[in-house]
Amino acid sequence: MMATLIDVRNLLALRGRMDAQQLSNELHLPRAMIDAMLERMEAMGKAQRIRQQATGCLTGSCKQCPDGKTACAQEWWTLR
């Protein structure tokens, strides 16, 4: 059975906030499919993206990381 936008919405309502990988794992869908569904929900005004910048790297290696601090940043999704 394929999950729908309603399934994504219901899971976000139940959990409050989740990242895309958590949604992907819970609904057994590929990450690309979840990303597309979340972007569609955002465009419809039903979901909100929350970007949280990392205040510090646990290993202290963010300066050497080729992706910089964006690799440590988290992105959460909630309902509007």
Rank of each mutant, 00 (worst) to 15 (best):
R31F: 10
Q21G: 04
P30C: 11
G16W: 00
H28L: 09
R31H: 13
G16N: 02
M37P: 13
Q21L: 07
R17K: 09
A32V: 14
H28P: 06
L23E: 03
M37A: 14
R17P: 01
M18F: 00
L14V: 01
D35R: 13
I34K: 07
Q22D: 05
L23M: 06
L27E: 07
R17M: 06
P30K: 11
Q22F: 01
L14P: 00
S24V: 09
M18T: 02
L29E: 09
Q21S: 05
E26T: 15
Q22R: 04
H28N: 11
E39N: 15
N25A: 06
L23H: 04
R31K: 12
R40N: 15
E26I: 12
P30L: 09
D19R: 09
R17Q: 10
M18W: 00
R40A: 14
P30N: 11
L12W: 02
A36M: 13
G16H: 01
R15A: 01
Q21Y: 06
P30H: 09
A13H: 03
D35G: 12
R15H: 01
M33D: 13
R31Y: 08
S24W: 02
R15F: 00
D35W: 11
H28Y: 04
A13I: 05
R15V: 00
N25V: 05
Q22Y: 01
A36W: 08
A36N: 13
L27F: 02
D19H: 12
R17E: 07
A32E: 14
P30T: 11
D35F: 10
L11C: 02
R15T: 00
H28R: 06
I34H: 06
R31G: 11
D35I: 14
M37V: 11
H28Q: 09
L27M: 06
L29P: 09
G16Q: 01
E39M: 13
S24I: 09
M37T: 14
I34N: 07
D19L: 04
I34S: 05
L12E: 00
R40V: 13
P30V: 08
A13G: 03
R15E: 01
Q21H: 05
S24Q: 07
L11A: 00
S24M: 08
E39I: 14
L38M: 10
I34G: 11
E39Q: 15
I34F: 03
L29A: 10
R40T: 15
R15D: 01
M33C: 14
L14W: 00
M18C: 03
L12V: 03
A36Q: 14
H28V: 10
L23K: 07
S24G: 06
L23R: 06
L12N: 01
L29C: 08
S24H: 04
R15W: 00
E26L: 11
E26R: 09
L23C: 08
R17L: 06
A32I: 13
Q21D: 07
M33P: 09
M33F: 12
E26H: 09
S24K: 06
S24F: 02
H28S: 10
A20P: 08
R17F: 03
L14R: 02
L12R: 02
L29H: 07
A20C: 06
L23F: 03
D35K: 12
I34R: 07
Q22V: 03
L14Y: 01
R40S: 15
L38I: 12
D35N: 15
R40Q: 15
L29Y: 03
L27N: 06
R31T: 10
